[in-house]
Every structure is written in structure tokens, then in C-alpha cells.
Design a binder for these strands. Structure first.
Lengths: 162, 162
DNA sequence: CCTTTAGTTGAAGTGCACTTCAACTAAAGG
DNA sequence: CCTTTAGTTGAAGTGCACTTCAACTAAAGG
């Protein structure tokens, strides 16, 4: 039973290019043993780490943050399902927030584009960073026509909030 | 009545850095007249274009696609609220899809990370591209333990789908 | 009028997440 | 055993969305 994978095998099984796997290793996200001939051999558990990395990226987490999360896994033993559940739970609120903001955006897209969003600085839609992914200062919905600009006095938006 | 804005004014009102505004102009996203001394003067309607750009970026649209959308606006006249509504509507389905995928991801995050997602290639969570933003080949939910890998035979996931 | 503040340009730099390349070596197959 | 396929490295390149820099000019304020 070959309980280690070559980089090509890991690549095929994970759907991640070998060059990306080497890159993850350089960043300390995954690890590999070496054969006598200096080739990488991955423990099967690395497959799960790669899966976690890709999933986390979908949540909008940077590789640096993912590395930090992976670093919190226990050393010495293969992480248990509980360990993985803990990490996944730590992304949950990020994901919830992201969904909340995108939903708000969807529900106000017409009105916000219609109004020209003069108050871009305070608009939900102007949440800087990675597509609504940040934890920054809370996003707010746009205010109704904050200036009396005739050029932009279109649809009076009724979507204000706190 | 000063019906044009300097780059500094547009920057403050839009919350977008002057360097970014110049960059948008180079890409053909916005335009400016010039003073005798070669300084940019923006028509007030440009503010709405900038707002549209930022909002679209939140939806996950690239500047190139945004430019294409803006190019579809009527030339010669200031776009009407209907024009903007049309553009906003064109993002709606992208946004819906994005929300759908993120919601699926949220609802399956535990299970998927728990199972190790051996079938990453076919997992919703492995939707390549910009954080679930693509229109690629439809994403699928993960299959239950597609290989009989003991290392990863954790929680039997019940979240399969067509 | 002079100083300060705001603007101009093209070129180069930044950060992220990789990929590509050249010049190799190792392992597997017939 | 030889060829093919798969692996190795460090350095450089890619694409996106900008920002920074140097060396200037323009406009505004007192």
C-alpha cells in the first residue's frame, strides 16, 4: 500500500497544479517528505490540507490566513475530524457576513445604481477589499441623497438603515 | 455653478484615489475634459460612472467587463435611470449565482471539510476563479467518499446532489 | 507676486497567487 | 539498458488593480 503520493498524484487527486503545490509548500501550508532522489512524497493527510486550502480560498481567505489556521492544528498527530470542524467553524462567520453583504447588495442593486450612490463612502456596496470579504469597519447602507445634487437626484432610495 | 469636478474633488466624493481615477481613464472607464493648463475636469455624471464601477467590483466583475458594460451606455446623452437599471440588472444573475454558491458552501462547510473533500474536482467548494464568481461548468456538490480512502473516511456526507 | 497646494506624465513598483522557463536528475516501462 | 515520463531548483514572468516616484506645471490663497 503506497501510503504516500507523488506530486503528480497529489495534483491529480486535489485538482491543484504541481507548481501550486510547490508554492504552498514554500509558504508553509503543506509539507512533504523526500525520497533518496530528492523527490517529494506526500502523506495522504496532506490531501485534506489541500482540500482545506482550496475551500478556504473560496471563502475568500488569503493563503497567509490559511497558513495561520493550519498552524493551529495539533502537531505530531493527524488532525481529527473535530480539528477540521473547528477550523471550518472559524470561517463560518466570515462566510455569513459575506453572504449577508452580497444579499444586501443584491436587494439594493437597482436602487443603489439608480441613485448614483453619491454616498459611496458609506454605502454597503463600497465595501473595500476582497469582494465584501473584510472585517473592516462595518459597512453601512447608503444614505438617501446626502447632497442635494440635481444631477444625481434620481430614484429616492428608501433603503437607509442605522 | 461649477458643473465640473477636479480630480481631487471627484476623488473625495467617490472615495476613489486620484491615481485610481487616472487608471480608470486609461482603461476607458471614465473620461475627463481638460483645462487650458491640461488638468482634468470631470462632468458630474462621471461620479455615477465611478459609483457603478465600485459597485460592480463588489459584485466581482473585472474592470474589463465593467468597461464593456459602460460601453453599452448610449453615447451623446447622459444615461437615464433606466440605462443604469439595465446595467444593474445584468449583474443580478451573477450576484444570485454567487450568493447561491456561497450559501451552499456555508451549509456544507463542516461536512465538506470534515470529509476531506477527496472529490475536490467536483465539489462546489472547489469552484475555481474569483471566489465563486465564474460562469464556468456548473459546480456540483461533493460526492460521498468517491474513493474508499480510509484516511479520509470521516463523516459520511449526506449532501450529494444530482 | 510669491508660496502653497493640487495637478500632470511615464515608468517602475506592489501584492497576491500562481505559472513558466531552463537546465537539470530520478524513476518507470518495455 | 535505454528511452520516456515525471520530478528538481531558482529566477523570472503573468495578470489584475492599483500605488509610488521623480520631475515637472497649474491654480488658488494671502
Amino acid at each position: 500500500m503506497p501510503d504516500s503520493l507523488t506530486i503528480g498524484e497529489l495534483s491529480v487527486r486535489s485538482g491543484v497544479a504541481p507548481s501550486a503545490l510547490r508554492y504552498y509548500e514554500r509558504l508553509g501550508l503543506i509539507r512533504a517528505d523526500r525520497t533518496g532522489g530528492n523527490q517529494r512524497r506526500y502523506a495522504r493527510a496532506e490531501l485534506r490540507r489541500v482540500a482545506f486550502i482550496r475551500i478556504s480560498q473560496q471563502v475568500g481567505i488569503s493563503l497567509d490566513e490559511i497558513r495561520a489556521a493550519l498552524d493551529s492544528l495539533p502537531e505530531g498527530r493527524t488532525p481529527s475530524p473535530q480539528d477540521w470542524a473547528r477550523l471550518s467553524a472559524s470561517w463560518q462567520s466570515r462566510l455569513d457576513e459575506k453572504i449577508r453583504l452580497l444579499t444586501e447588495l443584491r436587494d439594493n442593486l437597482d436602487g443603489c445604481i439608480g441613485c448614483g450612490c453619491l454616498s459611496l463612502q458609506r454605502c454597503v456596496l463600497n465595501n473595500p477589499g476582497d469582494a465584501l470579504g473584510g472585517e473592516g469597519p462595518g459597512a453601512r447602507l447608503m444614505l438617501p441623497r446626502p447632497t442635494g445634487d440635481p444631477t444625481l437626484a434620481g430614484t429616492p432610495s428608501g433603503v437607509t438603515r442605522g
